[in-house]
Design a protein around this nucleic acid. Structure first.
Length: 203
DNA sequence: CCCCAGATTGTCT
DNA sequence: GACAATCTGGGGA
């Protein structure tokens, strides 16, 4: 359908913090179409991982796992951890390793298909969390690591039909052991699909 | 080869 | 809120 709403490569060709914020602020959609069935959700939580950032997987250089991050912007970087997959979008110029992690979406289409892949009792557990949404979308490393998200095929991001202006909240990133103080998590504070409250600073 | 830490999740208290 | 489960990639011997 709307190939013209697909986010272009230029959208990703900039600082990952700007990209992460713009994704949430604009209510951008993550869309997957496999087996002729479409699922889609509004991005409500995203984190930025910068070049030279100790929390970034590429901090210690290029490896087999993080190779996609060094490629051109607008491609997927998918990795597995603790038996689940996490979906990222590569940002900035080729050669610069940075990315945006999608941590949560609010389903807007194909909920039945999502539930087939990820049976849940509580609706908002469907896509609340980076591993959860990958399961609901059928995103895995073998299928999508390095995938070009600007072609509008199989997996892509798109602007909503009616432009949105979501109020964005900022907090430190979740679950990391380095760079914990940096305010690089962007989310819609009014959405129940946000993965969880930010960790409170303490001793 | 062996060891270890990890951008998580689900379950139990 | 805390913690164990469970396995892959990366780094050191």
């Amino acid at each position: 359908m709307p190939a013209d709403d697909v986010l272009p490569r230029t959208f990703y060709h900039r600082d990952p913090a700007l990209v992460a914020r713009a994704l949430v602020e604009g209510g951008m959609l993550l869309v997957a179409e496999t087996d002729g069935c479409r699922v889609a959700g509004r991005i409500v939580e995203a984190e930025a991982y910068l070049t030279g950032d100790p929390a970034c997987h590429a901090y210690r250089g290029r490896t087999l796992r993080n190779e996609a991050m060094f490629g051109p912007p607008g491609h997927a970087y998918v990795y597995s951890i603790h038996q689940v997959f996490c979906f990222n979008i590569v940002t900035e110029a080729e050669g610069l390793a940075s990315a945006v992690l999608i941590r949560a979406v609010e389903p807007v289409a194909g909920v039945e298909r999502m539930r087939e892949r990820r049976p849940v009792v509580v609706a908002h557990d469907l896509t609340r969390g980076p591993g959860k949404l990958c399961q609901a979308y059928g995103i895995d490393r073998a299928s999508f690591n390095g995938w070009d998200l600007t072609a509008g095929e199989r997996l892509w991001l798109a602007a909503p039909t009616v432009a949105q202006q979501i109020t964005v909240a900022v907090s430190p990133r979740i679950g990391i052991s380095a760079g914990q103080e940096l305010p690089l998590r962007f989310y819609d504070p009014d959405c129940r699909f946000v993965s969880r409250a930010p960790r409170l600073p303490g001793p």
